[in-house]
Lab assay of single mutants.
Amino acid sequence: HNLTITQGKLFFHYNPKLCLSEIHKMEEVSGTKGRQERNDIALKTNGDQASCENELLKFSYIRTSFDKILLRWEPYWPPDFRDLLGFMLFYKEAPYQNVTEFDGQDACGSNSWTVVDIDPPLRSNDPKSQNHPGWLMRGLKPWTQYAIFVKTLVTFSDERRTYGAKSDIIYVQTDATNPSVPLDPISVSNSSSQIILKWKPPSDPNGNITHYLVFWERQAEDSELFELDYCLKGLKLPSRTWSPPFESEDSQKHNQSEYEDSAGECCSCPKTDSQILKELEESSFRKTFEDYLHNVVFVPRKTSSGTGAEDPRPSRKRRSLGDVGNVTVAVPTVAAFPNTSSTSVPTSPEEHRPFEKVVNKESLVISGLRHFTGYRIELQACNQDTPEERCSVAAYVSARTMPEAKADDIVGPVTHEIFENNVVHLMWQEPKEPNGLIVLYEVSYRRYGDEELHLCVSRKHFALERGCRLRGLSPGNYSVRIRATSLAGNGSWTEPTYFYVTDYLDVPSNIA
């Protein structure tokens, strides 16, 4: 807008934040220059609390790290170098490059900038070799853009010569660093050979998330399962459950009422301010606690030095998902009996873990797994792929695949051998790939016309006998059925096997 004052003059007093240069501009645009008398524009009460600059400061050096910015700028000295009290560095987070010096300023003089007072450097006698002032900004957020400017702080001049310097606002972004852990990993099994893994992005990506790394490792069953005799009275049979499938998407929606109208769909109840505040506090606490764990609990591995020492970490090797089922080394339970199943799973520490690289999504279907087997899954978020990966501390989750139908069934015939004193040795093959492992066998036998009897055969007993022995049988026709019990439950009964026990007292003698 054009402003013209045809008559009258300007009068400025007691404006401590208004620089004289701005008042002189007002004289020019209003056409009143030359009308004012000496005392109409006070030299001592206008701009006496402001830094009124008329020179431009330029930054000469900028260096960044993930949490620091090192700045240096060209030296500046007023005509009387004693008038320079120091520099004021202003900075704040700036997602967009549209910041002005006066953003967030209120009537009390406060604003949204963080201000650092910096002492002037030592003055050199040689004007050509003056030290460049600077400042190291610490405690910054990774991968965050900051708006920065600097200006001088000078003393009051009796001659009211307006001098000083100020830089333009520059924008500097800190470097990326390792992201925080992925949030809320959930693993479920939808079949006997697959596990579905879902997660949420890290709360602090500290860069642009480029991919996720998912490692999985087959877990050995508890050692007590191999040692305890679950045929003993009072000892509860062990059981394991597989990871249940995901709930429906509708039930997972946030901010939804727990109660549904019987007449149909209901609208979600909005969260109160107290609920939102509580969630923010919980989120802040979780982030602080995660940072504490990362800094205190997890110790970084030592990389190899120039002395030739090897990095103890196993090298990563990509495998196809079809090879995942046989990740671990199978060892027989008892070496003397080769027909026992290889369900003991000690994992070799030198073995390469299978892994998958996930790009542009937060889910993965891990296939080719062994049925009813526990897996430990390790999830890392990465925001750099080359020249070397920059990934987060791992988040861990466990899951067990679903049982395989008929995996616990005894394959092959049940054979028998009759000894003296009416002892019958029953023999059968253990299931080759049971659900988890076989903890015991149930032997059901009966003599024709009598009630059915049951015998429990422990895992250890089966390994020693290759089956079991029935003792003290009365003469007669017998039928026997056997079924295995694994961590997933009972298998199917075998087809009945028949044998006849004679009275050993009636056996004919070869003595003449």
Rank of each mutant, 00 (worst) to 15 (best):
residue 203 S to E: 11
residue 206 N to A: 15
residue 208 N to Q: 05
residue 211 H to K: 06
residue 213 L to P: 01
residue 213 L to R: 15
residue 214 V to T: 08
residue 214 V to N: 02
residue 218 R to P: 07
residue 220 A to K: 07
residue 222 D to E: 08
residue 225 L to H: 07
residue 229 D to R: 06
residue 230 Y to L: 12
residue 230 Y to W: 13
residue 231 C to K: 01
residue 234 G to D: 03
residue 236 K to E: 02
residue 243 S to F: 12
residue 244 P to R: 13
residue 248 S to V: 10
residue 251 S to K: 14
residue 257 S to D: 07
residue 258 E to N: 15
residue 261 D to K: 03
residue 264 G to N: 07
residue 266 C to F: 05
residue 268 S to K: 15
residue 271 K to T: 06
residue 282 E to G: 05
residue 283 S to V: 10
residue 284 S to Y: 03
residue 289 F to C: 01
residue 289 F to S: 02
residue 292 Y to M: 03
residue 292 Y to I: 03
residue 295 N to L: 02
residue 296 V to K: 11
residue 304 S to Q: 09
residue 309 A to K: 10
residue 313 R to E: 15
residue 319 R to D: 04
residue 320 S to L: 09
residue 327 V to T: 13
residue 328 T to L: 14
residue 329 V to Q: 06
residue 331 V to T: 09
residue 332 P to T: 09
residue 334 V to E: 07
residue 337 F to Y: 08
residue 344 S to H: 11
residue 345 V to N: 13
residue 351 E to K: 09
residue 354 P to D: 10
residue 355 F to N: 14
residue 357 K to F: 13
residue 361 K to P: 11
residue 361 K to H: 08
residue 365 V to Q: 06
residue 366 I to K: 14
residue 367 S to T: 06
residue 372 F to N: 04
residue 374 G to D: 04
residue 376 R to S: 03
residue 376 R to A: 04
residue 378 E to V: 12
residue 379 L to S: 03
residue 380 Q to W: 11
residue 381 A to Y: 01
residue 381 A to M: 00
residue 383 N to G: 14
residue 384 Q to E: 09
residue 395 A to Q: 03
residue 396 Y to A: 05
residue 396 Y to P: 08
residue 398 S to T: 11
residue 400 R to E: 09
residue 400 R to Q: 04
residue 401 T to R: 00
residue 404 E to T: 11
residue 406 K to M: 07
residue 412 G to M: 11
residue 414 V to A: 07
residue 421 N to F: 02
residue 423 V to S: 04
residue 423 V to T: 11
residue 423 V to L: 07
residue 428 W to Y: 01
residue 431 P to C: 03
residue 434 P to G: 04
residue 434 P to S: 09
residue 437 L to K: 06
residue 442 E to I: 06
residue 449 G to S: 08
residue 460 K to I: 11
residue 461 H to F: 11
residue 462 F to D: 03
residue 465 E to L: 11
residue 465 E to M: 12
residue 467 G to W: 02
residue 468 C to Q: 04
residue 471 R to Y: 11
residue 474 S to G: 11
residue 475 P to L: 07
residue 475 P to T: 08
residue 476 G to C: 00
residue 477 N to K: 12
residue 480 V to S: 06
residue 481 R to C: 10
residue 482 I to L: 04
residue 488 A to Q: 15
residue 489 G to M: 02
residue 493 W to P: 04
residue 496 P to F: 15
residue 498 Y to F: 11
residue 503 D to H: 03
residue 510 N to S: 11
